[in-house]
Design a protein around this nucleic acid. Sequence first.
DNA 1: CATACGTGGCC
DNA 2: TGGCCAAGTAT
Length: 333
Amino acid sequence: MNKRSQFFSQQVVQWYLDHGRHDLPWRKKVTPYRIWISEIMLQQTQVKTVVPYFKNFIKKFPSQKRLAGASEDQVLAAWSGLGFYRRARNIFATKEIIKNNYGNKFPNQFQQIIELPGIGKSTAGAIMSLAYLDPHPILDGNVKRVISRFLKKELDLLKEAELWKLSQEMLSRDDCFSYTQGIMDLGATICTPSNPSCDECPVNSECLSAFKVRSIKKNKTVSAKKVIVMNLSLIQTEKSLLLVKNETDSIWRNLWLPFDSGSIKNYIKNFKLTTKEKIKHELTHRRLEINLKTYSSLKEQEIETNQTYKWIKKDRIEEYGLPKPISKVIKEL
DNA sequence: CATACGTGGCC
DNA sequence: TGGCCAAGTAT
């Protein structure tokens, strides 16, 4: 085992140095702050999707100090369209902790880092290895797949604790930065879930699955998607939009949405109905159907409600966090 | 331990 | 087309 893991880590490091994606923006300039933001963005999200969001976020908030004064709305606005918005709320919460407890300097101890909201064992490990060059294992989809294939283990039979142990054993102590980046690049570009490019793989000669890779996923029982129906009314004047902050503890929490049609029905007579449409939006576990009515109003009418609402100037809409289907509709107005 | 949480891409 | 998957975490 020792020899195999040594071979594996050495090969991965060398492959990263020769063939890794060194041009990714969070690799060109490395700081704990940039590693943190990139690692959060990359949770369950592909590199290609993250790159433009990372560049935009860093442009708006170049450093820990420059993020310190941001509002949660501003952070959510920078996250608009990226999904899993809890990550953005956790970035806001974490930067508040770093401002109050760490003098706006990202902590450098594993135990401190893992206690920050939105940072679990794998992200904390990645930050330690990448930002502080202190070897800590990670365990994401890439590592699970690459290592279990290399050792020809049935992924579904491996328990989480065993996978962590394997990840720890394989980890290069000499160059944890290149190793950690390398195993993720390897999983994303060579040892892909389907149709892996085994002939380009640096550990091919010792891989127990090489040339006979097959899906090692068992069929999971998938329950039918629940359909969630939302009835929303988008009210606009010539220059502004009436939006309400979604403070329910569910999807799109703290993002801005059109009013629920029911909660604004007493005012509808003041507005002129312009369009009706049904928007279908597929999520992993849900199927959303948004019945959207669009109304025009002559003035920015005050609404009696205990919800947080705002008439938002159309030219300042980018300062607010909006879910994808809503920002799409607004762009097309 | 199963489920919620977004969105885009692939086959 | 619909299901699966992607640098996971929180509950």
